[in-house]
Design a protein around this nucleic acid. Structure first.
Length: 811
RNA sequence: GCCGAGGUGGUGGAAUGGUAGACACGAAGGACUUAAAAUCCUUUGCCUUAGGGCGUGCGAGUUCGACUCUCGCCCUCGGCACCA
């Protein structure tokens, strides 16, 4: 017996990591044409300084999938980088007086080492760090191109303000009235800010039919964009000739309007308010500004308002209707004014009851009028009390009334979106400087594209004051322009979501170019990203922004495809012992686990936990199962075949086992079902143990081991590389072709037929070769167990599923 | 409130119209050991009068046959929410 080496991951893992690096096996030739290209990308991390288990859960299955694709014959680009701008660096600077650049780069160095422990297949020569001028220069470049086209613009308006982080936020970054990042209750502020005109692309962003994305994400994006078809109806003021435009999706209820409500921010409030109501209206506006946005948008809250003293005229019937202001109407949606139809809108109903306004029913289920409403009837029906539109159903009435209004020029069909333009200004330091100057009259003067990058200067003061820290840097702030003289620089920086909106393009493009952001030829060969993976929390932020950016870059002529990510897969959330993983209460750090059990075991266990998209529940106990199995894999793959008892009787079954295992593992990989591909491999090794004990053909055994190593190699790269060598194979297993299977070798001559009586399993038997249906019924009914259940009963139906099952239906 | 995903042994999960519980954990028993650990073997859904009966959140339905399809309800998680 040979002296066998035990499995020692802490010895072999660093060895192979070094060898892979030295031999550059993961460096991709972007211009190679001999294979089909496959770009496998996973959302890059923020360099927090620690690669935690959640990162492993996101990255290792994606790495395994990329390795699988490589073995399947693709030229795979799998890259990694760091989303390196953002507040934590700045907060570290504030609390610990560390330079944000140094903090970030120290963290990156540390994380690279942690990434290395994973045994990844990233092409690190293509690493990106977004806080470097070589990278963010292109943010500025795109910004200026977008400014030229009017897609980037500056506007003074109401914005969301995060009082903890002391900066404005985009709509998408406000969740339930709180800052998505800091959790602070956001407030409204009026300030001039820079925006990207994402609303111009609202309609195109809704087109997602061809995207291989989870329906859930598409759904969330559609909801966020929030398209709704309706009608703008113009109400003339009773006094003067100004017009209040209201947006409604239910223009069929126009004859039921009994009041109008304006948002407290509405432009015409001063116009409509009469002298005697001025004071009350002013107070109402003041109070509603005081109440937080959460209070204002709570559905539970009682509706409040204030009569303005003014009246408007319903253009359809010339009725005089009172104008209120009320903060249940949002200034940011539609026209900021609504027509109140209490009979057919629950919110308007509540408002009407409170202020004792009439409730006029104009829609009825059966054409008859019922007046004792307990709540609004919001369903469609037949129009009543609606002059010559009486009798029409809601659907038709909407169209006819809108047509009528368009003809008479007091209304028109419109489309409204929930989506707002993307506010990108941030009053913080650690981000891309917005490349803009202002002259003394606040005129905007864009930085010359040839002068890019506008380098973010080293700052001394980071305290968030509501003004960008760059304001304090006099040297940065003032610029002597050859043409315009003394100019003030924009001191706000860009939202970091700008950085991640196009990074995938940069991974595949020529990073050496100083003139163009991308190498078009390479983009053509590598994009869109074939497979993107990451968390669902980015559904309406990163994933929407990146789609928008792609369309803008297409219209600017930089890319010639419509979507950035062809296929998307969302991993679930990893728990530990049914709880959220947190550093304090139930920590789960990968580094010590790797030290003790090896990266392969951690990788495998993360994939074995359950289906990747549904998340998983880590338990230290269950983790033992994987380390035990890896030891068995090691044991079985290092046996001395001289000790194998030769036996050719089970050759056929052995071949079936090998082929069906290859098939199942391959198919599971394609579907991201890593958990079942591992359990299939476990069954395979269990069978191999039994086969060894029974004795088998020596060549088949050797083949079965080579196949085991190959099948396992994408998921457990280190142990398989070692076993590959120990089995006399040339470096590297990761450059091998993934095994293929022969369907012919899987189908057996022997089939097991299950016999049911009334759908209950009573027996089973084996058949050889092909048998006729008659023969099968014959064999089935002769079975002793089946007989017991058939005697004294009448067979009324016989079901036969070929090679599988017989069912006797008896009475 | 609306939309989406899900609910299967003691636990993680498998099976997407055809033998429910693969695989793994845990547990029990055994082998090896002075002993323990490790490893290996056996058993392991529940009830049981030992012949069976019951069983995939609950209740109906479709079907020869339902974890799987349909309808209603309950619960958990995620998203959206005064969007006119």
């Amino acid at each position: 017996m040979k002296n066998r080496i035990p499995y020692n991951p802490s010895l072999i893992e660093p060895k192979w990591q070094k060898k892979w690096k030295d031999s550059k096996i993961y460096t991709v030739d972007l211009d190679s044409k001999d294979k089909k290209n496959y770009f496998s990308l996973t959302m890059f991390p923020y360099p927090s300084g620690d690669l935690h288990i959640g990162h492993w859960y996101a990255f290792t299955p994606a790495d395994s999938y990329s390795r699988f694709k490589k073995m399947k014959g693709f030229n795979v680009l799998h890259t990694q980088g760091f989303d390196a701008f953002g507040l934590p660096a700045e907060n570290a600077a504030i609390s610990r007086n560390i330079n944000p650049m140094k903090w970030t780069f120290d963290n990156i160095d540390n994380m690279r080492g942690q990434f290395n422990l994973m045994g990844n297949s990233y092409d690190w020569t293509r690493e990106l760090i977004t806080c470097t001028p070589e990278y963010y220069k292109w943010n500025q470049f795109f910004f200026l191109k977008m400014y030229e086209k009017g897609i980037a613009y500056r506007k003074n308006g109401a914005v969301w303000w995060d009082p903890i982080d002391q900066t404005t936020l985009a709509n998408e970054q406000v969740v339930e009235g709180k800052s998505e990042r800091s959790g602070a209750d956001v407030v409204r502020k009026m300030m001039p800010q820079w925006y990207f005109k994402i609303t111009d692309y609202a309609e195109e962003l809704l087109e997602m039919d061809d995207l291989g994305w989870p329906e859930k994400i598409k759904h969330m994006q559609r909801n966020w964009i929030g398209k709704s078809l309706g009608t703008d109806v113009d109400f003339k003021l009773q006094k003067g000739n100004k017009i209040i435009s209201t947006f409604t999706t239910r223009v069929d209820t126009i004859f039921g309007v009994t009041f109008i409500v304006l948002a407290p921010e509405h432009d015409l409030i001063n116009e409509v308010t009469t002298e005697e109501h001025k004071e009350k209206v002013k107070n109402y506006i003041k109070n509603s500004a005081k109440s937080s946005e959460i209070e204002r948008t709570s559905t539970e809250r009682e509706k409040t308002g204030q009569f303005t003293g003014g009246y408007a005229i319903n253009p359809m019937n010339n009725k005089k209707i009172p104008i209120f202001i009320g903060d249940y109407v949002l200034g940011t949606y539609g026209t900021g004014a609504v027509m109140g139809v209490p009979a057919h809108d629950q919110r308007d109903y509540e408002f009407a009851k409170k202020y004792e306004l009439p409730v006029d029913v104009v829609i009825s289920k059966d054409g008859k009028i019922t007046n004792d409403l307990k709540k609004a009837n919001e369903s469609y029906g037949i129009l009543v009390n609606s002059q010559n539109f009486d009798g029409l159903d809601s659907e038709k009435a909407k169209k006819s009334i809108t047509d009528f209004m368009e003809k008479n020029r007091f209304g028109k069909g419109t489309v409204t979106y929930h989506l707002r333009d993307w506010l990108i200004s941030r009053q913080r330091y650690w981000g891309t400087p917005i490349p803009i100057f202002y002259d003394e009259n606040e005129n905007i003067i864009p930085v010359d594209i040839n002068e890019l990058p506008v380098v973010l200067p080293e700052a001394k003061e980071f305290m968030p004051t509501g003004q960008s820290p760059l304001t304090l840097d006099e040297e940065f702030l003032w610029f002597d322009h050859p043409k315009y003289g003394k100019l003030r620089r924009e001191t706000d920086t860009m939202d970091t979501f700008v950085d991640s909106s196009w990074y995938h393009l940069r991974f595949a493009s020529d990073e050496s170019s100083k003139v163009d952001p991308f190498n078009k030829e390479r983009l053509k060969n590598w994009l869109p990203v074939h497979q993107y993976t990451g968390g669902a929390e980015h559904a309406v932020m990163h994933l929407l922004y990146a789609r928008f950016f792609n369309k803008v870059l297409r219209d600017l002529g930089f890319v010639d495809f419509d979507e950035p990510y062809q296929n998307l897969y969302n991993q679930g959330v990893l728990l530990k012992d049914h709880q959220k993983i947190s550093k304090r209460s139930n920590p789960l750090a990968p580094d010590p686990l790797v030290k003790e059990f090896g990266a392969d075991a951690v990788r495998l266990y993360l994939m074995f936990l359950g289906p990747w998209d549904q998340g998983g529940d880590w338990s230290d106990d269950a983790f033992n199962g994987i380390t035990r199995w890896l030891n068995r894999v090691w044991d079985i793959s290092t046996r001395d075949t001289d000790e194998l008892i030769s036996n050719d009787e089970n050759n056929k079954d052995f071949e079936i086992l090998i082929n069906s295992t290859v098939k199942k593992v391959s198919e599971d990989f394609e579907r991201f079902k890593f958990n079942t591909s591992i359990s299939t491999l476990m069954e395979y090794t269990n069978s191999l143990s039994k086969i060894w004990n029974a004795g088998c053909n020596n060549d088949l055994w050797k083949e079965s081991i080579i196949i085991l190593i190959k099948l396992l190699s994408p998921m457990a790269p280190h142990i398989t590389e070692e076993l590959w060598g120990l089995n006399g194979q040339e470096f590297s297993v990761h450059n091998q072709e993934f095994p293929s299977w022969d369907d012919q070798l899987i189908s057996t001559d022997t089939k097991t037929i299950v016999v049911q009586v009334n759908g209950k399993v009573r027996s089973q038997f084996d058949i050889e070769g092909t048998k006729s249906e008659e023969e099968i019924f014959e064999m089935a009914s002769n079975n002793e167990k089946v007989q017991e259940n058939l005697t004294g009963k009448e067979i009324i139906k016989k079901i036969y599923v070929k090679d599988k099952l017989v069912n006797f239906v008896v009475r």
